[in-house]
Simulated assay, not measured.
Amino acid sequence: MTRSATYVETPDGQMPAHLWLPEGGTGPGLLLLQEIFGISRYVQSRAEDLADLGYVVLAPEIYWRLGVSRVAEGPQAMDEGLALMGRVDWDAAVRDAGTALGDLRGRPEVDGGAGVVGFCFGGGLGFHLAAVEEPDALVAYYGSAIPQLLELAPRVTCPSLHHLGLADAYIDGDARAAMLDALRSRPATRVETYEGADHAFDNPDLPLHHADASAAAWEHTVAFLAEQLPAT
């Protein structure tokens, strides 16, 4: 597995991005969409995991218009991440993600289609992207914006896998129920839920990490990608 810095050409300039190649150098593509902390250590770790499975992974810096690559780790990280997310131009972020998906599809290393994997902020962004760009597959971990995007659910026709903790304090009550109902109504969509898991349960750098839910979700993710976007 190798990693390099790259960029995605947009109408407004060059969006910084990070590219991971599998050992063989080629494979299906995965657009990795960041959590609220940007291209964090955790996001980089998951990119490496996906590249080790045989995927070409592209992670654009969605906060590039704000001049931020990642939030520094520390006690202020959550407040800073939430503040950055609140400043994002959502429509521009969707366009940037779509441009990055097109860039990924056009890379010579990509062979066998291109999907999207998103975490938290990136899970919701990936869901919106799937409604307008039709990737070959979508994996969304606790997409925080999805409850506000449920009108797009009929337009998400690609095979999709969603992970949601049943103790998620960020997506709770009526929002969770509406989200689960809308997603489960779609024929190509799978939803996996995890008892006792809160938001961001997959991130081992946060106190919300739930080891059992993280391991189970990753197992589901690997199997889903092998089925929908197999890497040779």
Results as ranks from 00 to 15, higher is better:
Met1Gly: 08
Met1Asn: 05
Met1Pro: 05
Arg3Ala: 02
Thr6Trp: 09
Thr10Val: 08
Pro11Asp: 13
Pro11Tyr: 06
Met15Val: 13
Ala17Trp: 05
His18Glu: 15
Leu19Ile: 11
Trp20Val: 02
Leu21Ile: 15
Pro22Thr: 02
Gly25Met: 14
Pro28Cys: 08
Leu32Phe: 14
Leu33Lys: 05
Val43Met: 15
Asp52Asn: 06
Leu53Lys: 05
Leu53Gly: 07
Gly54Trp: 11
Tyr55Ser: 01
Val56Pro: 04
Val57Gly: 01
Leu58Ala: 02
Ala59Arg: 00
Leu66Ala: 12
Gly67Asp: 11
Val68Asn: 12
Arg70Asp: 05
Val71Thr: 04
Ala72Val: 09
Gly74Met: 03
Pro75Phe: 02
Ala77Ser: 08
Glu80Pro: 00
Glu80Thr: 11
Gly81Asp: 12
Leu84Gln: 02
Val88Thr: 13
Val88Ser: 08
Trp90Asn: 12
Val94Glu: 13
Ala97Lys: 03
Thr99Val: 11
Gly102Ser: 15
Arg107Tyr: 06
Arg107Gly: 04
Glu109Gln: 14
Glu109Arg: 05
Asp111Gly: 04
Phe119Cys: 10
Gly126Val: 08
Gly126Arg: 05
Gly126Phe: 07
Gly126Asn: 07
Phe127Asn: 04
His128Ala: 15
Val132Ala: 14
Val132Phe: 07
Val139Gln: 08
Val139Asn: 10
Tyr142Met: 04
Ser144Lys: 03
Ile146Trp: 02
Pro147Asp: 09
Gln148Trp: 10
Gln148Ile: 00
Leu150Ser: 10
Glu151Tyr: 04
Ala153Thr: 14
Pro154Ser: 02
Pro154Glu: 05
Pro154Ala: 04
Pro159Ser: 07
Ser160Glu: 05
Leu164Gly: 00
Leu164Val: 03
Leu164Asn: 01
Gly165Leu: 03
Leu166Met: 13
Asp168Asn: 06
Ala169Phe: 12
Ala175Tyr: 01
Arg176Thr: 01
Ala178Ile: 00
Ala178Phe: 00
Ala178Lys: 05
Leu180Asp: 01
Leu183Gln: 10
Arg184Val: 02
Arg186Gly: 01
Thr189Ile: 08
Val191Phe: 15
Gly196Val: 01
Leu208Asp: 12
His210Lys: 10
Ser214Leu: 11
Ser214Gly: 13
Glu219Lys: 07
Thr221Trp: 09
Val222Ala: 10
Phe224Ala: 06
Glu227His: 10
Gln228Glu: 15
